[in-house]
Nucleic acid binder design. Structure first.
Lengths: 139, 139
DNA sequence: GTCGTTGCAAAGCGTTTGCAGCCTA
DNA sequence: TAGGCTGCAAACGCTTTGCAACGAC
């Protein structure tokens, strides 16, 4: 078995920084936009390849929010869930895991769960002002 | 405004039957395979168009399971959650909604949630026998 | 210098759409 | 008969892959 030494390139650094800097789950598009700032000329393929490498490495983990393309966040955090803003499309991490229990049919065995809340985030919840739609509003 | 009268075709009937018959959330592929039995020559485009029509009509609803393409199930049921078998790829409906609560950050407002359990279903949970893999095992 | 990495473009894959013919009402 | 519906194939958006040049070690 051959051990591949990973190289520390400008592009990969920019991508890692994007996650560290923004601090919430990001889409490939968001990573691309953010990392491009630090490393112009960066290609989409590199973003995908780097994200995959970071996933294999365990540095990133996937956040699957129903109805959206997969997002990625820095791994190693405690078990937590996510909040998906239906107005601006941003996804946030929620702290801690609410207690979740279900009575499963006989013969079923559960190994984990995934919980997503929907609603409006602090920027988008109306407070007497009109609702803003800062970014893409999902599909 | 013009009201479009929906026609009751052999294809649409076959697709409706597929859902009624199998009784669990289905992927477009599964619908295609199943409906094709009753209506050979059925095209994938028709499956997509019919599913969309049935969604608009309110007869179907989307089941988004993280990491899978969207599934569809007959609508009108009570609020419930889903169980995704990591062995055979099937998705099942669970009865009732387990109590779910979370403390959201200030300014956040939740309108709904989505909960998916992972594990092995009654066919796939080992009972001393070998594990079977009846259909497609997901992506 | 080696060989992992990059950017580009082409290919893949699931889904959608344009179009001419079909078939339900 | 009218016009919604169908199957086919092309188009689409997102992701992956092939390849030659690049650059970290």
């Amino acid at each position: 078995m051959k051990v591949v030494i990973e190289r520390n390139t400008r592009q990969k650094q920019a991508i890692r920084n994007a996650f560290a800097h923004i601090g919430r789950p990001l889409s490939t598009e968001e990573v691309y936009d953010e990392a491009r700032r630090a490393s112009s000329g960066l290609g989409m393929a590199t973003v995908y390849r780097s994200i995959r490498a970071l996933l294999d490495e365990g540095w990133l983990s996937v956040v699957e929010v129903p109805g959206r393309n997969p997002l990625y966040e820095i791994a190693g955090k405690e078990h937590h869930h996510h909040f998906s803003c239906t107005a601006c499309g941003r996804v946030y991490e929620l702290e801690g895991c609410v207690s979740v229990d279900a009575t499963l049919p006989p013969g079923f065995k559960t190994t984990g769960h995934d919980l997503t809340f929907y609603g409006t985030c602090d920027r988008c919840t109306p407070k007497g002002k009109s609702i803003k739609r800062p970014q893409s509003a999902g599909r």
